[in-house]
Design a protein around this nucleic acid. Structure first.
Length: 834
DNA sequence: GAGCACTGC
């Protein structure tokens, strides 16, 4: 480890690069391509609509009437709203509800009722009944006085849809002209609320729902729209967007253009408990902005609401309290002249006191003076609405969970009355498929008077049509048995489930810093994941959960999932930070600080790629890399492709597009099909290796103008994956055209010279991913001297060549290289500079 | 002769 790497860690201390000299309007269109395109995962089949099978109870009659004329569907996204069963819970909100400034009633009264307004009016009673509305006043007052609020809202509280609407009418939520310290010109700050979501479907479905509730058209469809969303490949916002749902990655991308997020008055960070790398970065940036002097915002504070399903109030609270510098110029006093009744509101909620963290800060809240210099974080706990789920444990530890799941499935099926589908959580495709065949086999022996079983696998790699089967209602007298991976834990919600079988395990990806290798391991889940899985049975009615482990094993589980930032390669995260002005990585406010070794490794890699200078600051190459929606290595390759002696941007984009999506070649099970596929793909195969084979495939697919789907089927290529490839390709081409590294080139013949250029180009990003042939026929890595085998999915499997370069190094049954091409030793030497 | 949970720009 060179000494300078240590300097990166400790050196430099500017917390945030000043953006006062830059005044760049935030538009994501430029980056992601402005053409809106509907994708299959967000079409109307997947959109959130009131379910037609909402259980009825006395008070619900009118509610059911409201949903007439709307397409029912069984599928809601993980972030679906839950008003239907909220109402069936029988509880009514007794206390008087605050009037919303955005109440569609008032909007509608101003003009003739349009269908949109009528729909919004119809939704209003459902909204008012959500638990979050009983806290609306508390939420408003909290953020009037403080800049940061923590909201713990359990499933079914309605927080994701309602909190933005509750805040949108606040006096601080408007655009104001300010003159920045170092700039002469006046700029507008604020006016819009951002809500970040971890997944694209969630951002889109929530935006749709909120637009509906507010009675405004969605996004770019009309200038009258007040609600929009922004996700990769799909930006639907207009200049008057007031509430904008976006993925965490999109907000980070916007910060590249404007670190001060000037268009926003508030950022709501939703689903923080999921703890992906991006949300941790967003939280760190939010704390930096909130704790700073706000010079880039003309002193106007950015309100931050952090929403989580689990009560990690103490940690999040102290995270935002630490390093908070009270700003003298932070608040326009006029804005806070409000009807705040101190008696009805306290900065520290009772739930915090239960956790023993309410400290002296909370006691001084008596007026604005005290509050500004003491506690800066308001908290609010919103109860959820879930039906009870009873838990069953096994008396003894289970050896074979597939076998145990099989027995439990039949036990439930025989003992429990219909209706009530069963959702089984398993670890992966392999266990799903083996249980599938076992259940089907045993089901043949069932007597005729027992209801039938319909076994449905569900995992991400399953083709879209097969996934959809899970959401179709079962035939009469049939119980659905859904065998799912983790996809059903957060990403997808299936209605009708009353029984959960939880094997207690999941596949977790773990990056091993020392050897720079990803492992995918089956590990016990955390307590919170177990609770999440259990909760999937209680969304519509009381349910039951069968845990295939003992109660003691449950008690021994880790309380939370390990945050992703503690178990992944940090090179991309660090580049993200450096490009947004964070020079001092070690002192960045991480909610969980990654190990120093992992930071050093990532800094080393960035330095070797030329993204950082030897003083640890970001280089011009690094800045360019940070703009690209690619891993750091692939980003480096794309930049190298524009060098005059390599000159292969167009082709590199084609290859990179494949490498950044799932496998484009279908996995075939039968020998027969495999042989058939091999001959069908022969015309695509290149002996240089997988990189060139991918290029051939993309070029052939792109050249097919008649029927690409048929082409894909003929070649045993995944059409879904190829559509994703074309999306990425289009985005990268647009970006490279904008940066002038790509001019409308036509596809070229792939000559040996071009092939050499391409492989040399990839070595600029992957020189450390190379290995040479040993006398015994095995391969050993050039850096680290570890044994590595060519993965059987590679076209070079079983071949012996002088040296190889690979895209990925993974450990499954042994260490494998995937995405492999042949290279020459002297090219590697050149690229490594040795 | 292997087999890959899930996101995201």
């Amino acid at each position: 480890m060179p000494e300078r790497v240590h300097k990166y860690l400790d050196g430099g201390s500017k917390p945030m690069k000043s953006a006062t000299t830059r005044d760049i309007e935030v538009t994501t269109d430029r980056l992601s391509g402005s053409k809106k395109r509907k994708r299959e995962d967000v079409d109307d089949n997947l959109s959130v609509r009131p379910r037609s099978n909402a259980p009825s109870s006395g008070s619900l009659a009118s509610v059911e009437g409201l949903s007439k004329g709307f397409k029912p569907t069984n599928l809601t996204s993980a972030k679906g709203y839950e008003p239907q069963h909220q109402l069936t819970n029988g509880s009514t909100t007794k206390q008087s509800l605050p009037k919303s400034r955005l109440s569609p009633n008032s909007l509608a009264n101003q003009s003739v009722q349009s269908p949109l307004k009528a729909r919004a009016n119809a939704l209003w009673p459902l909204r008012k009944a959500l638990p979050v509305w009983s806290r609306a006043s508390e939420i408003r007052q909290g953020l009037r006085i403080k800049d940061i609020m923590l909201l713990v809202g359990e499933t079914g509280s309605g927080k994701s849809t309602q909190v933005p609407q509750i805040l949108a009418g606040e006096p601080w939520c408007k655009s104001r002209p300010v003159t920045l310290e170092n700039a002469k010109q006046t700029v507008n700050v604020g006016g819009c609320i951002a809500i970040t979501e971890p997944r694209r479907v969630a951002a889109i479905t929530l935006a749709r729902r909120v637009a509906e509730e507010m009675g405004t058209p969605l996004g770019a469809s009309s200038p009258a729209s007040r609600v929009g969303y922004s996700v990769r490949f799909d930006n639907s916002t207009s200049p008057c967007t007031k509430i904008k749902f976006l993925t965490e990655g999109m907000l980070l991308q916007e910060m590249l253009l404007d670190p001060w997020l000037k268009q926003y008055s508030a950022v709501i960070v939703d689903e923080v408990h999921e703890r992906g790398v991006n949300v941790d970065l967003v939280l760190g940036f939010m704390r930096n902005i909130a704790a700073g002097r706000l010079e880039g915002r003309g002193g106007i504070p950015l309100k931050v609401a952090v929403m989580s399903a689990t009560a990690e109030m103490e940690r999040l609270g102290s995270f935002f309290e630490e390093g908070y510098v009270p700003s003298s110029n932070g608040v326009d006093p006029e804005e806070n002249e409000s009807d705040v009744s101190e008696s009805e509101w306290s900065g520290i909620s009772s739930s915090d006191e239960e956790h023993g963290t309410a400290d002296s800060k909370g006691k001084h809240i008596n007026g604005k003076q005290a509050e500004k210099s003491c506690a800066h974080v308001a908290t609010c706990h919103i109860e959820g609405r879930q039906f009870p789920v009873t838990i069953n444990y096994t008396p003894e530890p289970v050896q074979d969970f597939v076998d145990a799941a099989l027995r439990t499935t039949f036990k439930i099926h025989y003992q429990e009355p219909m209706p009530g589908d069963i959702l089984v959580f398993l670890t992966g495709q392999e266990t799903v498929e083996s249980l599938e065949s076992l259940v089907n086999e045993y089901a043949l022996g069932m007597s005729r008077d027992v209801p039938k079983m319909l076994v449905l696998p569900l995992f991400a790699a399953l083709p879209q049509a097969a996934q959809q089967r899970v959401f179709q209602p079962a035939p009469p007298r049939t119980r659905k048995i859904i065998l799912a991976t983790n996809i059903a834990e957060t990403s997808v919600t299936v209605s009708g489930v009353r029984f959960i079988i939880d094997c207690g395990k999941a596949k977790i990806k773990q990056f091993r810093t020392r050897i720079g290798l990803d492992s995918l391991l089956v590990k016990p889940i955390s307590k919170s994941a177990a609770i999440q899985r259990k909760g999937r049975a209680g969304r519509e009615a009381p349910g039951q959960c069968y845990r295939l482990y003992t109660e003691q094993s449950y008690l021994d589980l880790e309380p939370r999932n390990t945050p992703e930032i503690l178990r992944s390669d940090l090179s991309h995260a660090i580049l993200t930070m450096k490009a947004r002005g964070v020079d001092d990585i070690i002192n960045f406010p991480f909610l969980d600080h990654p190990p120093r070794e992992a930071l050093e490794k990532a800094l080393m890699q960035l330095f070797q790629l030329g993204a950082l200078t030897d003083t640890g600051t970001i280089s011009e190459i690094g800045q360019q890399m940070a703009k690209l929606p690619l891993t750091v290595s692939l980003g480096r390759v794309l930049i190298a492709a524009a060098e005059p002696e390599l000159d292969c941007v167009s082709e590199v984009i084609d290859i990179i597009s494949c490498l950044s999506v799932e496998n484009i070649f279908l996995n075939l099970t039968s020998e027969e099909k495999k042989e058939e596929a091999q001959s069908a793909r022969r015309e695509l195969y290149r002996r240089e290796g997988d990189h060139l084979t991918l290029l051939m495939t993309v070029q052939a697919y792109a050249a097919e103008n008649a029927d690409r789907k048929a082409w894909a089927e003929r070649h045993f290529v995944s059409h879904r994956a190829m559509q994703a490839v074309m999306d990425v390709r289009k985005q990268l081409r647009a970006q490279c055209q904008q940066s002038k590294s790509l001019k409308g080139e036509k596809p070229r013949q792939i000559t040996p010279e071009l092939a050499t250029s391409l492989l040399k180009c990839f070595l600029k990003g992957f020189a450390t991913n190379s290995a040479r042939l040993m006398p015994d026929g095995s391969y050993k890595t050039i850096v680290g001297n570890q044994t590595v085998a060519i993965h059987p999915s590679s076209g070079l499997f079983g071949k012996k060549v002088e040296a190889i370069m690979y895209n990925e190094f993974v450990f499954t049954t042994k260490s494998y290289a995937r995405g492999v091409s042949t290279v020459q030793m002297d090219w590697i030497g050149g690229a490594l500079g040795i």
